[in-house]
Design a protein around this nucleic acid. Structure first.
Length: 367
RNA sequence: GGGGACGUCGCUUAGCCUGGUUUAAGGCCCUUGAUUGUCGAUCAAGUGAUCGUGGGUUCAAAUCCCAUCGUCCCCG
């Protein structure tokens, strides 16, 4: 693995980089579409490619429970199974165990939980989670971490940081046995600055290929989120990729890019797509709204995606009102294209030292 | 021709027997928000019916009575 910073914006802390992995080189800052169960919901790999996707996410927890490792192994690994030859980052499933599982018991050994699918009990250790991602064939693996919700008491957050560090160390040891792909560390600490500092410093001692900031965008107010990010990112080594997990809306991403974050993933483009909200250069557009019933314009007149080149707001609104699958697909496609195009433009703006203006301009147009 | 059942927002039901806490309730649809390591989910808010129509009884009627119109069923 190799991470090169090719340019730093002169007026912000945004930077452009190239992260080289075995299956390809990705340009940062980058947005990674989320394909939890081995599918970026409603989109084919070919469509993702058309949109400009360079890397997508999978989820160890979901894929381990279904279809199970054996089937993926028989299929020659996750890339072959889902027919996506480019890089895949797999999330550990730590977040899901805390958000989805019916019951869970966190012990230092690992997490004992009941599957949200069938109620079966499983114990997953940090070692298991690394091994699962090894079987999947992940290009970037994420360790099991403990993500606390907001608000969390200092004691809860502290306990989670301690456990996350302990698990990070064990994950690293397990990872070293095979060294397949690369492994990131995940910093926690909720909204407590001293915990944030402690968490990243403990990860740095262990040493990872990249560093993720987790536990944000879990319900905290926006200004607090930016405040914590701004503070925490200082301790992330500038020579390694920085990944903000689960974020976010376009404005959140641009704000984080300006603080020096390199990688993002978020369900928003596809989730909003399924629920009929499109992201456009003028802000969000709720396709179902009655005002679009007779609107012959595309979702975004400045967008060059297949959806915008072929379909009207009136038609898309009809598809949603009629419950047609195509509506979900088209708006999801547009949203993914929009996010990836936004990142392309952001990278260009950074290289031309005009990222701050680009960001301000985007925010202003979305008002 | 005879008998019966039923008419309450766009759809579908509750309320009627035992009149008053009904500014008529719920579900679906519709409208508008929310949605951040997934959610074809879910949540929140909102529009919408003078209770088929006309009389009557009563202090008071969706509710009781009469007539009428409409729909459906059964018997000839």
């Amino acid at each position: 693995m190799d991470f090169k910073i090719i340019h730093k914006d002169t007026h912000s802390r945004a930077r452009c980089g190239l992260l080289t992995l075995e299956r390809g080189t990705i340009e940062t800052p980058i947005f990674m579409p989320v394909g939890t169960q081995g599918s970026v919901k409603s989109l084919s790999p070919q469509e993702l490619d058309e949109c400009g996707a360079q890397i997508i996410l999978g989820n160890a927890y979901h894929l381990y429970l279904r279809p199970g490792l054996q089937i993926i192994e028989e299929s020659g690994g996750l890339h072959k199974f889902i027919s996506w030859p480019k890089p895949i980052l797999t999330d550990s499933g730590g977040y899901q165990i805390f958000s989805l599982a019916l019951l869970r018991k966190v012990k230092d050994e690992g997490v004992l939980f009941q599957s949200h699918l069938d109620g079966a009990r499983h114990l997953l250790t940090p070692e298991d989670v690394v091994r699962i991602q090894n079987v999947l064939g992940s290009d970037i693996s994420m360790p099991l971490d403990e993500c606390v919700s907001y608000p969390a008491s200092f004691e809860q957050a502290q306990k989670a940081v301690e456990r996350t560090t302990l698990w990070a160390l064990r994950s690293k040891k397990e990872f070293e046995k095979r060294k397949q792909g690369i492994l990131f560390g995940i910093a926690q600490g909720s909204t407590y600055k001293d915990l944030r500092k402690r968490s990243i410093n403990e990860l740095l001692e262990i040493g990872f290929d990249g560093y993720a900031i987790g536990g944000l965008s879990v319900g905290e107010p926006q200004d607090l989120r930016y405040n914590i990010l701004h503070f925490a990112i200082d301790d992330f080594p500038s020579g390694s990729p920085r990944y903000m997990m689960g974020v976010g809306l376009p404005e959140d991403i641009l704000e984080a890019v300006s603080m020096g974050v390199d990688m993002f993933d978020c369900v928003v483009p596809t989730r909003y797509g399924r629920n009929g909200t499109a992201f456009t250069s003028q802000g969000k557009l709720t396709v179902r709204n009655g005002e679009f019933a007779h609107d012959q314009r595309p979702l975004d007149e400045k967008c060059g995606c297949t959806c915008c080149r072929n379909f009207s707001r009136a038609y898309l609104r009809h598809l949603f009102n009629a419950g047609e699958i195509l509506g979900i697909r088209l708006v999801s496609y547009h949203n993914i294209y929009f996010f990836l195009h936004l990142m392309r433009e952001a990278r260009l703006a950074i290289r031309e030292d005009r990222f701050s203006a680009f960001k301000e301009n985007f925010m202003a147009r979305c008002e």
